[in-house]
Design a protein around this nucleic acid. Structure first.
Lengths: 328, 328
DNA sequence: AATAGGTATGTTAACGTACTCATAACACAA
DNA sequence: TTGTGTTATGAGTACGTTAACATACCTATT
């Protein structure tokens, strides 16, 4: 910047004014400075600016595995919210093997150019209870668990189960079999709790839940098992669409029709790109809204700052043709 | 930092030494400083550090739509390469609507804390030919097109077609129908060129290619059309697995067996999570290797810097059970 | 006793920016 | 003429860090 100033025969301050498009610069001077900038290939220094005004215009996002559907949708939602605020995302992917703790994640993120910290907690962190956010920087954890000192935001992974169960109950189903994700997953824990509570509210003893790994193949195996072992089954709730899709394939391979013999529902509404004529009844989450909530609590504009809240964004039931009334 | 120094009764420099774990600090002093840091909640300033040593430890990534398979895999691959170098990713998602130009993308990225710039060019930019990278910062474009002044890296979207066509030729197929992605897509352009060249090398006039939008539904429609209009067809090459999956469903709905009546191949190896018993013959790309190449050319370590290259990373043929010899 | 080599610590400077305040020139009204 | 306001520009400063150099002291060797 000093070089540009010298080349244009003005002060550094005038260069700054031109660079930022501020008023009160003579038109001739402006052109002279711009020519000098061009000449010297001047680019304002991000570090200098940030040091000066204390903002980075970027929000930190720490997740463990980019490719999981939940995390991908997180990036997408936050990216669009960030763009609306003219912000970038500073992404750190934690090693998949390494032990994940909130303290460690926070420590890593705090060393980066971020105005706020977002941590995706897809499995319970060992230090969740005791965790204290760093003072002076907005912190949001994306998870269903509430925390007394940190704002948490998530899609409502409990409520989605209630929506689906209610839909199945209204069709006339009683017992509903459950195919869950891996038990360490927070999403799984809440989706499953919703299933269980919904049944218990109707005084139905929940039948043994099955555990998959979110993949279609694991859903297939579970579906196969149920088709062979549960003759009275009329409905399956798979905790995501991928497993639901696998379960449907298994039922059909076992000679059962969907939905005439067995109804199947999933969660996420993630099949459209992969499966033709997607007929699965599911719950769709508004991931952009979640992204916006997460972003705005992590980087509070003047005034928004403040107390710890726990935000749960409801999903929307999408009824297609994988559900019907049970056989008489 | 000055506050910490005052509280601990030492100089700023000593605080710096403690913060960075440098030697030559008395054990007692170290503890005193650390106590003061704890007390005051000291965190080193990213801006100060960057200003001092001119590095950001982050690489910029500019893409248009996070959710597309190609872009997601880009994030994943680069994230793992970045982590190996103890780097973060500064992600900017360009508006999906806004006109995309390399100059604009570069301008945006250059204003961020990045040691290198990576631009995903999934469709041809209007200024590709005339584009000049900013001097002083490593720039890589992820695309199949080569550029005289910029390093470009991509999975080999041309070669994958040759692999698949060769596989089908060896099984005894002649004419092979093509279901492509949208024609503005760079990946599509090269996959299609590979299909066409492979046929022409065998002196087979390529039959009219069909255009989809990468989704399973578009593959279904194309498959349906082919089943009805091409009685002699023995093989379909769909430019991604999702469309291939749709095409297979269409063929079966039309009473054709896969692979007995028609062989089908795709690209990406992306179905595993979504489809049980995935039987599709396809090409898998090593996205982590691509990520590593991209990263290392964007942020050249001392010595690696230099000339413009064009790197094409070959895919690997995965033969499953959607392909067989044609009917006699 | 003088010198050399190590260890612990402090001082200075520079990285690039933009705010605040000061100054200068000029126009216009009283 | 004097005062008042506007516009264009410059000077000074502070943001937080760390390399390089300087100093002080202590120990071991000659």
């Amino acid at each position: 910047m000093a070089d540009v100033a010298r080349a244009a025969g003005v002060s550094q301050q005038t260069v700054s004014r031109v660079a930022n498009g501020l008023p009160n610069v003579n038109e001739q001077t402006r052109q002279r400075v711009q020519a000098a900038m061009q000449e010297l290939g001047f680019r304002p220094s991000y570090a200098g600016r940030s040091l000066r005004d204390g903002r980075y215009h970027s929000v930190g996002l720490c997740i463990n595995d980019v490719t999981k559907f939940g995390n991908l949708s997180m990036i997408d939602g936050i990216a669009s919210a960030a763009r609306e605020h003219n912000c970038a995302i500073t992404l750190v992917e934690m090693s998949k093997t390494e032990e994940f703790s909130l303290a460690e994640a926070t420590r890593r993120m705090a060393a980066l150019p971020v105005d706020g910290i977002i941590i995706g907690m897809s499995r319970m962190a060992p230090d969740f209870e005791t965790f204290d956010p760093l003072p002076g920087i907005g912190t949001v954890i994306v998870t269903m668990y509430a925390h007394p000192r940190v704002t948490t935001v998530d899609s409502d992974h409990y409520g989605c189960s209630l929506l689906l169960m209610d839909h199945l109950f209204k069709l006339g189903h009683g017992q509903i079999r459950y195919i869950g994700g891996p038990s360490f997953s927070v999403d799984e824990q809440f989706r499953r709790a919703g299933w269980q509570d919904a049944l218990e509210r109707k005084h139905i003893e929940p039948a043994e839940p099955l555990e998959g790994d979110w993949s279609a193949n694991s859903g297939y195996e579970a579906g196969r098992y149920l088709a062979e072992h549960d003759r009275t089954m009329t409905a399956i709730y798979a905790a995501n669409d991928q497993m639901a899709n696998g379960a449907i394939a298994a039922l059909r391979d076992s000679g059962l029709r969907v939905p005439e013999d067995v109804s199947v529902v999933g969660v996420d509404d993630s099949l459209d790109d992969f499966v033709a004529h997607n007929e699965l009844t599911t719950v769709r989450f508004d991931l952009h809204q979640r992204g916006r909530e997460v972003f705005e609590h992590a980087v509070p504009e003047a005034g928004t700052a403040g107390k710890t809240v726990a935000i749960r964004i409801p999903g929307q039931l999408i009824v297609r043709h994988s559900t019907a009334a049970p056989r008489a």
